[in-house]
Design a protein around this nucleic acid. Structure first.
Lengths: 253, 253
DNA sequence: CGACTGATTGAGATTGTTCAAGTTCGGTGG
DNA sequence: CCACCGAACTTGAACAATCTCAATCAGTCG
């Protein structure tokens, strides 16, 4: 609980560096930090926040814009404030695999590496808080709480990557699609009370296919099957209604 | 270079707690620490080593023995001294996926979690250095170098997991098999000079299939194809000769 | 309205699986 | 040392899942 105030603080501090105090997005940003306070923000002292805010930049990127390219030098880390970032890798011949999604308040960027092993791209319109690489790494030395948070994020990402390996290697197409819907539903609305979820897919059919190791046609067919089985309803291609998460989960293998 | 001495030191310290000083395995263990000094050993001060050695146990486990089970409580971490450990996850209906291999001098075990998200099992006969969970975590607080090493290992494992996701999701059966051979060849003999590699597979066809998301029959067929293409020769099922790593790499997609 | 992009649907081709024999390897006992 | 046994591996043929290619549909932007 002690973090709630601190989290609100950083958001304002970060925001004020670049935006007018009356900017309509401020409350939203603060709320998102406040509500979750799982992000790195929550691990910082007011002093560190003020210091950080001087080097930090609020960045908005539109769908499809690249944050960092594979095998490219990285100068900064991006803290996701709003939206979804997709991480992918590409084979020489163009085959692509999405290897992770990052939601607020994750930090995007391979710690300590000078060269990014993956591509990071805005999967939806995103707002980021960009921290210079050296700056964050220095902070990391000084602040054990921050260190622990980022360590925890890395370990959680490793757990998720391994979970996904099971999905990629051992599940059928229909289980894969169900698994992705479940993943997105639980990440986008982590604290809904009941068993229903309504959300917009933050990605195209191609992205879904690339995440699941399938083709867009197979994805489309499996979505249609889930639809006719009454597990989901789809409107406007992206808008998904899951009346019962439990029934969806039962299809995940 | 400063680490070489330290590394040798810990190996002896650890070993002396349980084994006679004349035990024939001591030199081998020391050498492996000394040569690589990438493991956690190398990050410890002599004092810490002595302290650690009092709580540490040298453990040998035979092929197939489980180190930790999925969703099981963990009381210790295992440092791999010799052999290969395989990490896997299983779906309710028994479908299995191997999600990683660990070679010396990796540390096995999900840091900070009380419950292991995966199963760890000896893929070959292994020798482990078992450190009580609390002990290692305490050491981690005190020692920044150790912390950095384990952080680096976690990040490297994350990179590897994501690389493997590409293999699982986007490569053909034959590229998958070639990729695994390459992975094993490079990990087992990391510092061979030329382009040839000769090694014994540390795993059965079933393990290979479970790592690649294939069936044993498909693995077998693809190995036969690589054999008749002259990329590898196989003797006694497990013994692999790769005359040219470059040619193998060209088949990895 | 018409062109364009993204998604769906269908039909046939392909890859990998399943099921069913064989074969080889490594150990064991005569 | 050899014959035998079970487990692990290989091979073949039929089958199923997914992909590919192609046509159609729906929504969006000039």
């Amino acid at each position: 609980m002690v973090h709630a105030l601190t989290s609100a603080y950083i958001c304002i501090a970060m925001d004020m560096t670049r935006r007018d105090i009356h900017n309509s997005e401020i409350p939203a940003l603060c709320r998102s930090c406040e509500v979750r306070h799982k992000g790195m923000c929550g691990a910082l002292t007011p002093d560190e926040l003020t210091q950080l805010s001087r080097h930090t930049r609020q960045v908005a990127q539109a769908v499809g814009e690249e944050l960092v390219g594979e095998s490219t030098d990285v100068a900064a880390y991006d803290n996701v404030m709003r939206g979804v970032v997709k991480l992918s890798k590409t084979l020489e011949d163009g085959r692509q695999q999405i290897v992770g999604l990052q939601f607020a308040p994750d930090l995007v960027g391979r710690l300590y590496a000078t060269e990014s092993p993956i591509t990071a791209e805005a999967a939806s319109d995103v707002e980021l808080c960009r921290v210079p690489k050296a700056m964050l790494e220095r902070l990391l030395e000084q602040n054990p709480a921050l260190r622990k948070r980022l360590m925890d994020q890395s370990l959680r990402e490793l757990d998720e990557a391994r979970d996904w390996m099971v999905t990629l290697g051992r599940k059928t197409a229909s289980e894969k699609v169900a698994s992705l819907l479940l993943l997105i539903a639980t990440h986008l609305e982590p604290d809904a009370r009941d068993d229903r979820r309504v959300f917009d897919l933050p990605m195209s059919r191609l992205d879904i296919a690339d995440y699941l190791g399938l083709t867009i046609e197979t994805v489309s067919r499996q979505l249609s099957k889930l639809k006719s089985a009454g597990i989901i309803t789809i409107t406007a291609n992206r808008h998904i209604d899951v009346p019962s998460l439990a029934r969806l989960r039962a299809r995940c293998g």
